[in-house]
Amino acid sequence: MTQSIMVVTTTVFFMLIQCVDAYCQQSDSSKIAPQLEPISDSVTARYQFEFTVVGTIGVTRYEDNPTRFSSTNRFRGFAGLLRAMWHPDHLLSIGVTSGYILLSEETFASGTAGLLESESEVQLTAFPILLSFAMQPGNLQIGAGVGAYMLTSATRIAGEEKFTSSDFELGVHAWAGYDFDVFSGFSVGPEVSLHVLSNRGIGAFHAGVRVQYDLLY
């Protein structure tokens, strides 16, 4: 019930703020342009079909320590993502995102209680397949993707043979990037991103560099 109240109240509040904000802006702008005029696109489309390669490093946070031998729930990781986006002539662009993410890697030294005398290792990686949406005011791009992450766990316990096991999980990806034009069709800039697999209690925050190529430049 508490959750319900929080979601509803914050949502309503959020919308009210938007309304007030917009009303204030409308009042201001009406002083400048009292005549209502036809509207043109406020944001010029930067591209029509774009490939972006993103390389990031980041931190993965699990809801709890992932094993009883783990001393933390935060781990360093990295990601390489490829994004293809189609941008028609209005605000929204749509596309797909995929790539490789190392979420965490742990090694337990020999002698760890319960793992006998041999060293043990665990690793979790993800292969996202996401439907993505983005908006791009100026050189900024803000986007989100939703879809499946194929998680792969690689485990070797106390000298046993290493083996992998995989499964799909629903997840969401949000990012914000800024593009500096380098030469025709190419741009480079920073990107920060977030991956959330809430059902598994996994969140990963990444920062890195994006290189973008506009196919139809």
Partner: peptide
């Protein structure tokens, strides 16, 4: 861009 924010 000094455009009108809202229009009917």
């Amino acid at each position: 861009a000094d455009t009108a924010l809202v229009k009917p």
